[in-house]
C-alpha cells in the first residue's frame, strides 16, 4: 500500500498523534519506510544559533525535539529515517514531498481557531493543497 510515508513533525502534541497514525499505516505494509521530516524555520535560525554553545549542540537540540516520535516509531519496529530541512515549514514540506515522490504525507493539524488560522496560516492546510500525493491530516 503506502511504501514511502512522509511524517512531518514539529515536536508538538499533534505531531505525536500524527506519528501514531503513521505507524498504523506503516504496519499494514511490509518494507514500508517512514521519513520523519522536521523543518527548522528560517525565523528560528538566529535564536537557535545564539542559544547553542556549538554547532554540535545545535544539532542535538533539534534532534531532541523529535526524539519522542523517533522513540515511538522505533518501538513499533518500523524502518525510518530522519530528515532535517531548513526553510518555511509549509512550502519546504511540499517541495520535499514532491521531489522525493513519497506515497503519502502525514501531518498533524495545530487545531487553531479560525481567526488565528487566518492570521498565522495553517501549515497542514497548505501542505494538503499543494502536495501531489495523498495527504492525511491528523486532528
Amino acid at each position: 500500500m503506502y511504501q514511502y510515508i512522509l511524517l512531518a513533525a514539529d515536536g508538538s502534541e499533534n505531531a505525536i498523534r500524527a506519528a501514531k497514525e503513521a505507524i498504523k499505516l506503516a504496519s499494514f505494509t511490509e518494507s514500508s519506510l517512514i521519513d520523519l521530516v522536521y523543518v527548522v524555520d528560517f525565523e528560528k535560525s538566529k535564536s537557535d544559533v545564539l542559544h547553542a554553545a556549538s554547532p554540535e549542540s545545535l544539532e542535538i537540540g533539534r534532534r531532541r525535539k523529535i526524539a519522542p516520535i523517533e522513540q515511538l516509531i522505533k518501538e513499533a519496529g518500523i524502518t525510518y529515517k530522519v530528515t532535517l530541512l531548513k526553510g518555511e515549514p509549509g512550502p519546504e514540506i511540499v517541495r520535499y514531498a514532491n521531489e522525493a515522490n513519497v506515497d503519502i504525507v502525514i501531518i498533524g493539524s495545530r487545531g487553531l481557531n479560525s481567526l488565528r488560522e487566518m492570521v498565522l496560516g495553517s501549515v497542514s492546510h497548505k501542505v494538503m493543497k499543494r502536495v501531489k500525493c495523498p495527504a492525511l491530516i491528523v486532528k
Binding site: 535560525s45 544559533v49 554547532p55 545545535l58 531548513k86
Partner: peptide, 12 residues
Amino acid sequence: LLTSQIVDDMTD
C-alpha cells in the same frame, strides 16, 4: 562570524 554561522545554518 555570528552572522556567518546563522547563514551556514539556514543554507545547510
